[in-house]
Nucleic acid binder design. Structure first.
Lengths: 239, 239
DNA sequence: CGGACACTTGAATGCTGTCAAAAGGGGTGG
DNA sequence: CCACCCCTTTTGACAGCATTCAAGTGTCCG
């Protein structure tokens, strides 16, 4: 028995419902199993791909936690998202044959590499996969709309509340607590994502703790009053 | 001779190189001509689609100018982009079978409606179209990364300069002047897109004019010193 | 175990928002 | 086609939130 061979098949992957289309025949599933060419381990701090790298595959995160960020020549940078198990990264590379952002592991991670050419081939044969790929890209577009709303119209407290709610919701969908979470990123990275300085992030954490909304102990956060956080995000007065 | 029938064919459309893949055989081009089901005219102020509408087609803009915006129940809203001839809108609807944003015409417009089911079908038959669709979605993702960078790390002057440069560049690609433009949107809409209040937009326009970078006469803008604008955007110190 | 890095907190500055008022245009209806 | 009215835009004064600069503490990784 070769456990490794079993693990490599998407059909046996416990993240299947996150990465793969739901309705596929056994026959199609056999094809989809051939999508993942290799597994790749990435260590904390290392990049899965970087701005300028040739694009040739999408990656499904099996374990670990990533950030993606865009940078400019003049030193500006912006974290564009945090990604966890079951999520797909690399979509930015399709348009220009090169990646336009960096994907950095925030903890040791493992990803499934899916050669893009193979994705296109199989998409033509398996309509369910085709639709699935389109939905993944559309979902990313919609997610970014939400981030734009956050960056363009929310104040610091609202941004951080929205960030925490989003994170805990995604973690809960993966079987973790709905009230407790461990942040894998620094205050500076949170700030970059939220368009705030790290001091503002830290201060806002402290204020939430003072107000009894959360408990913060460095990177451990416990949500005490999730309703209050929701109310904050839906505050009637925008910026 | 029926000029209308001729116009409906993508193969004869002067925007073809903006909407369609470049390398297609004549045979494939015949197929692609069947993509556009109908033309639709939208009058200034009307919506092409709205949040919650059932999704069933993508739209290629033939003429006119749109804004897309997301809104929340509590009255927050955010302009997520401005779209002009040759650009594709509606991608947000794929993931949830319903649109999650509004597309509003800022001037009288005409769009080509491409039923999504037909796009999927043809994508399976014509690989060049498949790749093209993927690139369009990927391009939108990358564009939004740029907007996130703008919203998350730039100050008011930098944002407005980046906005003007982007707009004039896209207009120039469509045969318009590279230094003169007519804004189709209000100061408030610019502000919503840039995460600023309309007064700040107005003030920043005035400052640019005082500094000799541009000439502003309501919605007519003439760029006098494009290099200065570029320098502003690439300013070494971010927010 | 030690040092670099991450985090917290304080004080002051400043950019952008808010409120207000006036002027200018453009669109619509007669 | 013209005139009127409303919406858009501009500008000023002031307030507030987030940034900046600085110092001290804590902690995690090698």
């Amino acid at each position: 028995m070769t456990p490794k061979a079993i693990q490599v098949a998407c059909s046996n992957c416990n993240l299947r419902e996150l990465c793969m289309p739901v309705d596929v025949t056994d026959q199609d599933m056999d094809k989809l199993d051939s999508l993942v060419a290799t597994r790749r381990k990435i260590r904390r701090g290392e990049s899965l791909f970087s701005n300028g790298d040739r694009f040739d595959a999408l990656y499904a995160i099996r374990t670990g936690f990533f950030k993606t960020r865009v940078t400019t020549e003049d030193g500006r940078d912006q974290v564009t998202g945090f990604q966890m198990a079951g999520e797909i990264i690399g979509l930015d590379g399709i348009v220009g044959d090169r990646h336009s952002c960096d994907a950095v592991a925030l903890e040791d991670a493992e990803v499934c590499e899916m050669p893009y050419g193979r994705i296109e081939e199989l998409s033509r044969e398996v309509p369910a996969l085709q639709t699935h790929v389109h939905k993944i890209m559309s979902r990313e577009i919609v997610r970014e709309h939400g981030v734009m709303l956050l960056l363009g119209s929310m104040r610091a407290e609202e941004r951080l509340a929205a960030f925490l709610l989003n994170l805990v919701q995604r973690l809960h969908a993966r079987g973790f607590s709905r009230s407790e979470l461990v942040l894998r990123m620094t205050r500076e990275e949170i700030g970059s994502f939220l368009g705030l300085k790290l001091e503002t992030v830290s201060r806002t954490f402290s204020k939430f703790a003072e107000d009894g909304l959360i408990e913060v102990k460095h990177r451990h956060v416990r949500i005490l009053d999730i309703e209050a956080l929701r109310t904050l995000v839906n505050a009637p007065e925008g910026r």
